[in-house]
Design a protein around this nucleic acid. Sequence first.
DNA 1: ATCCTATATAGGACTTGTCATATAATAGTA
DNA 2: TACTATTATATGACAAGTCCTATATAGGAT
Lengths: 185, 185
Amino acid sequence: MSLEQAILGFLNYRPYSGYDLKKIFDTSVRHFWPADQSQIYRTLSRMNKEGWVDIEMVHQESRPDRKLYHITTAGQEALRQWLATPLPPQENRSADMIQVFFAGQLADEEILALFERAADNIRAGLARYAQIPREIEAYSEYTTSPREFFFWMLTLDVGMHTLQANLAFIEALIQRIRNGEIPAA
Amino acid sequence: MSLEQAILGFLNYRPYSGYDLKKIFDTSVRHFWPADQSQIYRTLSRMNKEGWVDIEMVHQESRPDRKLYHITTAGQEALRQWLATPLPPQENRSADMIQVFFAGQLADEEILALFERAADNIRAGLARYAQIPREIEAYSEYTTSPREFFFWMLTLDVGMHTLQANLAFIEALIQRIRNGEIPAA
DNA sequence: ATCCTATATAGGACTTGTCATATAATAGTA
DNA sequence: TACTATTATATGACAAGTCCTATATAGGAT
């Protein structure tokens, strides 16, 4: 479960509460690992039972108490080990590809509309990516070093690169379709 | 749930049993939608309750009886509607990107090894893709038309294109790392 | 005075998907 | 003779993730 490792990654910078982590996820890794609030809380308590994190109760006046999670030595070892271990090749489910696979059952104009919408979605995604660097500056208080920052930015590069490659492919495909390359029934 | 729609897509060609469908999935769409045997069976019985498929019991001597699933009119409408409806932008979880995000916590050589392994995985994926056209011929009995075939091949194109783009990116990255572009701690 | 937002944690119910196993008959192989 | 594979369906147990709701307090806006 990569959510555990991602949490360990952040806790290795410094202790955080579940509430903190939710906000950090939403402003950093949500593009490749969205995390649900309730799942973060449940995962944290599981990680505590596994001995990867310790809980420090922090009492607050006028606010509910916080549970500050500290990474343990076992947690640090688990993180290091996971980071250095190559992942098994992933299988990504893609509903879009299911639509493409059966698109022949639609009329040409419908297919074209579908791909044009897909291209629009990618452009919207690229636009969203373009403003992330600014968001990152908003949480640059978490930046521990230029080294960390390099890899944070690298995930953005990968994301944009992939989107751009997909967009180029779809745009070329739309041209092919306009040229009447889809065989008739 | 796209598994339902994928099943409808195949049943719209002709009726199949759960056993058939498992084999068809494994030789066609597993690269973008792997399907577990038990899940296919459970999904089929759910789809039956939803009125999307009818069951024809086919008795067999010397083999267990087959349940042949026929798509209903309601099922065909559901399929058509789903195919023509643009999907909400997907969020793909990528454990690889979690590794990249926190890779700064590793030593340079470890990072390099990780990316080289990732590149190898992509090359292996490309090699697997390269032999799929042959596999597709093995199930070309299911091919209803050149039009269908066009889109089946298109999913391959997309897959290979994406892999190739990722590979090019990682190879360039490995060069950058070798040139010492990773900031020190 | 009421509503909304922010801070903070947590549980119930549910969906999707995985893994292992059971059943049952036949045919081929070691 | 014993095992393995193929055909065929099905369930139990679990893991991961989503959605909704509950609880509690404080401050600001309408």
